[in-house]
Simulated assay, not measured.
Amino acid sequence: MSSHDAPLIIIGTGLAGYNLAREWRKYDQSTPLLMLTQDSGRSYSKPMLSTAFSKNKTAESLTMADAGKMAEQLKATIHTFVSVDAIDTEQRVIQFDGQQLNYRDLVIAAGSETINLPIENSAAEKTFAVNDLEQFSAFQLAAESAQRILIIGGGLIGCEYTNDLLSTGAKISLVELQPTLLSNLCHQSVGDALVSRFTEEGVDLHLGSAVTAIRANNNGVIATLNDGSELTADLVLSAVGVRARTELARGAGLKCQRGIIVDRELRSSAANIYALGDCAEVDGQLLYYVMPLMQCVRALAKTLSGTPTAVSYPAMPVTIKTSCFPIVSNPPSSSAHWEVEQTDGGIKALAYDKTKSLVGFSLGGSAIADKAALAKQLPKVMA
């Protein structure tokens, strides 16, 4: 098969892979499409995982379509539970399951993987991380009988799961290395306001602390903190962050840093290979959020259809799904002067540059109502 007649191949069937396939099919109904995934290929919305407990959702009810249904919708061939072993960039060939396939274009949408805590842990079977539907299903099953849950990490995912797991009635302990919550996303005043709200909800907070070891204890775990104190729990949820999956790309000789390096058209350092989503470092930016992903999807679908299109990023505020104290934040890209205002039932922190132009904000509680108006005043992230 010549590369001209070869399929578009997409590695990954997450939000990036499936949304790209759907958007691309609007322009191209005839080119063969092959998709490969290491998991079941079920279509679901990953952001909904961290609100599933409070909404009484299971992995099954979160599933919108299985791989078979997606294959029908996308006029695609989808191979599930397979790993791509190698990419030959010169011959435009991928190897998987003992097969070799030519590609016309190849899109790596392999996503991200959870960062493992570099600590002693003799209770690995009681320690969970959630970054996909299968991991969520395992964690939810374990949490059914848990009365005490320890969450490590006070960033976006850790805070969203803390909020969500409060609905189970379990006692939640949260350990965060920084002195407040959401320190990488929000102004300290908003992070501190969430600390107060979680405390009111009964969360056992350990700020400025780190877990140094986890050991099994009967049917649960004992976690040792850096001050020597200990916490007991039935299970642990590690939410210390994710990193881009780049191993396959590095093996193929593609240029990578934190993610697979691509330009504004999502082109990698190898011809006819693109990267999209959590694994892609777009013009120096690696953003693990849905809004930039969708901007890239729309641009790349056009490029793959014969109309090279550079992606642009508007201002993209991040919504943190902590219903007990909802937050929306758009952190400034550089140093800024902050002005903080307490509102009725909320808090508004606005970031200004030297010209007194708005360059970011953090909103909490009722102040999130100002999100749309403030976002219009922000500069584009990538024009």
Rank of each mutant, 00 (worst) to 15 (best):
A59M: 08
Q73W: 05
A65F: 03
I78P: 05
F81I: 01
L62P: 10
M48A: 10
M70A: 07
Q38C: 09
T63D: 05
S61K: 12
K57L: 15
T80G: 00
I78A: 08
K69T: 14
P32C: 01
R42F: 13
A59W: 09
T37C: 12
I78N: 06
L36H: 02
S45K: 14
L36E: 02
M48R: 15
P47E: 07
S45P: 01
I78K: 04
S40Y: 00
Q73E: 06
T80P: 04
T77C: 01
T77Y: 02
T31V: 09
S40R: 03
T37F: 06
K57F: 14
A67M: 07
Q29L: 10
H79M: 10
L34G: 05
F53A: 08
S43E: 10
S45E: 12
H79Y: 15
M64E: 15
D39C: 09
S61M: 11
E60T: 10
K75V: 08
F53D: 00
P47S: 07
S50H: 03
Q73G: 04
S43F: 12
I78Y: 09
E72V: 11
K55H: 13
M35S: 01
V82I: 15
T58S: 15
D66S: 09
L62F: 13
M35H: 06
N56G: 08
N56D: 15
S30Q: 15
L74P: 04
L36V: 04
K69A: 12
M48F: 12
T31H: 12
A76C: 13
L62S: 10
N56V: 02
T31P: 06
M70N: 02
G68C: 08
K46H: 07
L36M: 05
A65I: 04
P32T: 00
H79G: 03
E60W: 10
K75H: 14
M48Y: 13
F81M: 03
V82S: 01
L34I: 15
S50W: 01
P47G: 05
A71H: 08
E72S: 14
E72W: 07
P32V: 00
Q29M: 09
N56L: 11
R42V: 13
M48G: 07
H79C: 06
K57M: 14
F53W: 04
A76N: 11
A52Y: 08
A52S: 14
V82Y: 00
T63I: 03
T80F: 01
S54D: 03
L34M: 13
M64Q: 13
L34C: 08
L62A: 04
L49C: 04
S61F: 11
I78S: 05
Q38W: 01
A59F: 06
Y44N: 00
A65G: 04
V82A: 02
I78G: 02
L74G: 06
D39R: 12
L33K: 08
K57V: 02
S61A: 14
S50C: 09
L36Q: 02
L74E: 06
E72Q: 12
M70F: 01
T80V: 12
M64P: 05
A59D: 14
A71Q: 09
F53Q: 04
K57S: 11
